[in-house]
Design a binder for these strands. Sequence first.
DNA 1: GGCGCCATGTAAACCGTTACATGATTCA
DNA 2: TGAATCATGTAACGGTTTACATGGCGCC
Lengths: 170, 170
Amino acid sequence: MNFRYFILGLLAEQPMSGYDIKLFLKSLDWLIASPSFGSVYPTLHSLLEDALVTVDVVENDDKPARKVYTITEAGRQALRAWIGQPLECDISLKTFLMRLMLAGNLSRDELVTYLQKRRSQVKVHLDALEKIAGEHDEAVGLGKRLAFDFGLTAATTEIHWLTQTLEGLS
Amino acid sequence: MNFRYFILGLLAEQPMSGYDIKLFLKSLDWLIASPSFGSVYPTLHSLLEDALVTVDVVENDDKPARKVYTITEAGRQALRAWIGQPLECDISLKTFLMRLMLAGNLSRDELVTYLQKRRSQVKVHLDALEKIAGEHDEAVGLGKRLAFDFGLTAATTEIHWLTQTLEGLS
DNA sequence: GGCGCCATGTAAACCGTTACATGATTCA
DNA sequence: TGAATCATGTAACGGTTTACATGGCGCC
């Protein structure tokens, strides 16, 4: 949801310009989401104002100058605080993946806990979906039936993936 | 994304109050998304203003009065226009599922075309993901590797589901 | 010359959330 | 008495998109 910390997290791995960030995010469009330039640049300005990043203007002879942003120590601290905060009942897939991408800032144990928590949350929603899919059962329109079926498949797959990933991690 | 037409689509199946809609959407929270009351009621007012729905105030003795909204012929027309419009490069999973849920307004052929288009779009994104996952391969952080892996699994599963569903439909 | 890419930025509009207000009923 | 559910609504706020503006380079 909030790209602010995701962008900060990307800068924690390597300094980037707003254009770089936008391009990378565009390649993740399907997986996560791609904010527009009109969202990326102001976010960067805001991070700069809060001293979580610094800028270096890199001049190029043939290409326009680039503003490369680098994370500061305060930025790393803020990032750790954001990543460390509990998952609540958040469960948005996009947020899960954004945080997962920044798992480099997590210890192995923290990552395991994160994935386990996600798994239990998906399980809750799978059970809930099974229940309402059972209630609506017949009579309900074809579209709803298909959508419920897709949800069941997606949730089951995610739980399976989480279990396998957790096994690979231990 | 835009709940306006999704809500209109739900009303096409049966008249509902804002509260009913919110409850149903809440049960779909994980699968699609659940707009708040502060979003549902104004949307309903807007639909009413555009004469796409009508209201009936149903008084109850023990419970508060409910405002039950019913779709009009103009509303059905607007809904058909929305559903009929091409998918562009939209591909947001939520939008796909919202439209899928309203498939009752589609002919069998249109539904098949819709699912086929979705499948080809997911395939494009699967290929793109495989490419960037291959590029980043080693060196890239654990988090990114996991996220890419999840994306690959999710996309593969969706394509598989679409293929099976299409087979079941013919 | 025109198109597309690189690169940055701003302002208005849009859509949604959060937080509030109201008020009746039921249950502990 | 207080909390929870039912039921509707408004206003401020926030994040994002859309649409614009700028400007140089390389290619056909």
